[in-house]
Measured scan of single mutants.
Amino acid sequence: GATAVSEWTEYKTADGKTYYYNNRTDESTWEKPQELK
């Protein structure tokens, strides 16, 4: 099967917290998305 390329990108805020942003859905989350686990 084809490997899905994750749409999630990991970013850090100014105070060093990590969050994740999805370019396709324009969604952001503090929790690590399922695709990255």
Rank of each mutant, 00 (worst) to 15 (best):
T13A: 06
T9L: 10
D15L: 04
E27F: 04
Y11G: 05
E7N: 07
Q34D: 15
D15K: 03
G16M: 00
G1P: 14
T9R: 11
Y11H: 13
T25I: 03
S28Q: 12
K12R: 14
T25R: 03
S28W: 15
T29H: 05
E10L: 05
A4W: 12
R24Y: 14
N23S: 15
S6L: 09
Y20T: 00
K32D: 04
N23H: 15
S28M: 15
Y20E: 00
K12W: 06
E31W: 06
W30E: 09
T13N: 08
T13M: 06
G1Q: 13
N23W: 15
K37M: 15
E7D: 12
G1D: 12
W30A: 07
G1V: 14
P33D: 02
K17S: 06
Q34P: 14
D15R: 02
R24H: 09
R24A: 10
K37G: 15
Y11I: 13
E31T: 11
W30N: 07
T25Q: 03
T25F: 03
R24L: 15
Y21F: 06
E10P: 05
P33Y: 02
A14W: 08
E27I: 07
T9Y: 09
E35M: 05
E7Q: 08
T3K: 05
W8V: 01
W8E: 00
T9W: 07
G1M: 14
N23F: 11
T9I: 13
A2S: 14
K12D: 02
A2H: 13
N23K: 14
A2V: 13
T29S: 11
T29Q: 11
K32T: 08
K12A: 05
W30L: 09
S6M: 09
L36A: 05
K17G: 05
A4D: 12
S28I: 15
R24S: 10
T9K: 11
Y19K: 04
T13S: 08
T18W: 04
L36C: 10
Q34A: 15
K32S: 04
E35R: 03
T25G: 01
V5M: 12
R24G: 05
Y19E: 03
Q34M: 11
E35V: 07
A4Y: 08
E35F: 07
A4F: 10
L36D: 08
K17H: 08
G1F: 14
K12P: 02
K37V: 14
T13W: 03
D15A: 07
K37A: 15
R24F: 14
G1H: 13
K17N: 07
A4T: 13
V5L: 13
W30K: 04
T3E: 11
W30I: 06
Q34H: 11
N23L: 10
K17W: 05
N23C: 15
T3Y: 07
T25P: 01
L36S: 06
G16Y: 01
W8D: 00
N22K: 02
G16E: 02
T29L: 06
D15P: 00
T9D: 04
V5W: 13
N22S: 03
Y20C: 04
K32I: 11
T13G: 09
Y21E: 02
Y20F: 06
T3I: 13
K17M: 09
E10D: 01
K32F: 06
E10I: 09
T13L: 04
K17I: 08
R24V: 15
E31C: 15
N23T: 14
T9S: 12
Q34R: 07
Y20A: 00
E31L: 08
T25A: 03
K32G: 03
R24D: 05
P33H: 02
Y11S: 05
A2G: 13
K37I: 15
R24P: 02
T9P: 00
T13D: 11
Y19M: 08
T29P: 02
E27G: 03
Y21H: 09
P33R: 00
G16D: 03
D15H: 04
Y20W: 15
K32N: 07
S6D: 11
S28K: 15
N23Y: 13
S28G: 10
K37E: 14
A4S: 12
Y21K: 10
T18G: 02
E27L: 05
V5D: 11
E31I: 11
V5Y: 12
T3G: 12
A14G: 07
T9N: 07
A4H: 13
K12F: 06
Y20V: 00
S6R: 09
T3D: 12
A2D: 12
P33W: 02
T3Q: 14
Q34T: 13
W8R: 01
E31N: 07
T9M: 11
V5Q: 12
E10Q: 08
T25H: 02
K17V: 08
K17L: 10
A2E: 12
E31H: 08
S28R: 15
K12L: 10
W8S: 00
T18Q: 04
S6Q: 11
T3A: 14
V5F: 13
E7R: 03
P33Q: 02
A4I: 14
N23R: 13
T3S: 14
Q34S: 13
T18K: 06
Y20R: 00
R24Q: 10
A14K: 12
A14E: 10
T9F: 10
P33M: 02
T9Q: 12
E10S: 05
W8F: 02
S28V: 15
P33L: 02
T18P: 05
E31M: 06
W30Q: 06
T18L: 09
R24K: 12
G16Q: 01
G1R: 07
A2P: 13
E35I: 05
N22A: 01
Y19S: 01
T9E: 09
K17D: 07
Y20D: 00
Y20P: 01
K12N: 05
Y21N: 03
W8N: 00
A14Q: 11
W30M: 10
Y11P: 00
T29N: 03
W30S: 09
E27D: 04
P33T: 02
K12V: 13
Y21R: 09
Y21M: 04
Y11W: 07
G16K: 01
S28L: 15
Y21S: 02
V5T: 13
D15Y: 05
G1E: 12
K32H: 05
S28Y: 15
Q34W: 14
N22M: 01
R24W: 13
S6V: 09
Y21I: 07
Y19I: 08
Q34F: 12
T29I: 08
T9H: 10
K12T: 12
K17E: 08
S6T: 12
Y21A: 02
Q34G: 11
W30R: 04
K32V: 10
K32Y: 05
K37H: 12
W8L: 01
E27Q: 10
R24M: 11
E10N: 01
E27A: 05
Q34Y: 11
L36Q: 05
L36R: 04
T13H: 04
Y19D: 01
Y20H: 01
W8K: 00
K32L: 10
N22R: 02
K12Y: 09
Q34C: 14
S6Y: 10
E10W: 05
Y11E: 06
N22T: 00
K12M: 10
T25K: 03
E10M: 09
S6H: 09
E7P: 08
K32E: 08
E35H: 07
T25W: 03
S6W: 08
E7A: 09
E35L: 05
E31Q: 09
V5S: 13
T18I: 13
Y11V: 12
A2R: 08
T13F: 04
T25L: 05
E10F: 03
E10K: 04
E7K: 03
G1K: 07
T29K: 06
